[in-house]
Design a protein around this nucleic acid. Structure first.
Lengths: 211, 211
DNA sequence: TCTTTTGTGTAACAAAAGTTACATCTATAA
DNA sequence: TTATAGATGTAACTTTTGTTACACAAAAGA
């Protein structure tokens, strides 16, 4: 089961031998929607490799304020966990499943071993870091250069892409949490987006019309 | 000259053989204060390794708006350049010397070669990425959770640490650029910080009293 | 059914940040 | 010396965002 999925998704990326090793040492895990997958601050001795689904990665500060960083999809890994020992910061990185997802955990000591052994693993690790860095840059751009209305619309369209569904099942309150603002602000700006014809509002549901 | 400095700064980190290779293939460069070291968007076939000095890394968007991400110091490298081919984004990452600095450039194709060959290089690359990621997280925290007065004070104290000098030679206008706000806002908040006894203002100069 | 919880809409106000305008002041060049 | 450019201080105003308060509607539960 896990073997088949690993082969199906990663045979293009990884050498046969490496896939075999992943099957041997990896731990398979199913994560239900809204379940907490990882919580840093915790020490992390394994790294997650996404088989399918979607994980929302967010940052939380001491006051419980939160901000969404990006989403993980099939084939992604969460490189931030590699260095969880280093960051002495109080803030946390959290990963919560946005839909039912499947993940393989790989013991962290294999990371270096495989760097020597497999070219495909070297590429994968370097690429993962680069993708993560550029996603962090995108988050920084969003925070630094966009107003809340633009941030909100970006959030909605990003989520539509990840969920592969133009109708989002969510509430204004939850969106406000993800953007670190208040429910009233979100309601106000959503109504504005609706008036501009970009979305359609329902209870517990938002249709995104253009994206 | 470059040999001595490399040995002096990196003999603790790198194996003897690796330092020898760096000396052979690296290109040494002096960068004067305010000089542009790197500008991404440009393709980058070499990665910088800091010998000494300080480089300000900032993000610039299409409109020319800018935001400072972090500073590089001795021993740092700029992992963002590794993946410069990937990021198709229009925005740019820039590196400008904050003081006279010395840098060794390493051809990017050596990166993978050395990953296989040297354990110290593997650690260095992974550590660099992790440090960079956590610095990006800090930038995100600052943008997401702090008001402008706090961001300004953090900027001043961070810069004092990097410059190893509690008196900063700068202008309100330059600070405003680094924080992506306006000169008037900076002047207003600086005056407020002065009234709180945290800094002392002079023409072209700011003394940071506590940090 | 009636009650309670949850989600949404909106007004009124407060705080933070951005903008425009102008007055000084200082260093430097002509 | 005088003129000019750059730097700072500050008032007045606008826009954006955050807060408080309350009305109402839909869903869930008793």
């Amino acid at each position: 089961m896990i073997q088949e999925k690993l082969k199906e998704y990663f045979s293009v990326v990884f050498e046969e031998d490496l896939i075999q090793e992943i099957i041997e040492v990896g731990t398979y895990k199913k994560v239900k929607e809204n379940e907490l997958l990882l919580d840093l601050g915790d020490k992390f001795d394994k790294i997650p490799l996404m088989l399918n689904g979607a994980i929302k990665i967010s940052r939380e500060d001491d006051n419980g304020d939160e901000i969404v960083l990006y989403f993980l999809e099939r084939g992604d890994t969460c490189t931030i966990t590699f260095g969880s020992g280093l960051t002495s910061s109080k803030s946390k990185v959290r990963g919560v499943a946005e839909k039912d997802s499947e993940v393989v955990f790989i013991p962290i000591h294999k990371l270096e071993e495989w760097l020597v052994k497999y070219k495909s693993w070297r590429n994968f690790v370097i690429d993962s870091y680069n993708i993560r860095l550029s996603e962090m840059l995108e988050a920084i751009d969003t925070l630094a250069f966009m107003k809340m209305d633009q941030r909100l619309y970006k959030y909605l369209t990003d989520k539509v892409k990840i969920m592969r569904d133009s109708t989002l099942n969510t509430t204004h309150q939850k969106i406000a949490q993800d953007l670190n603002t208040s429910r009233v602000v979100v309601s106000r700006l959503l109504k504005q987006l609706e008036n501009e014809g970009k979305i359609k509002l329902h209870r517990n549901k938002i249709e995104v019309l253009e994206f």
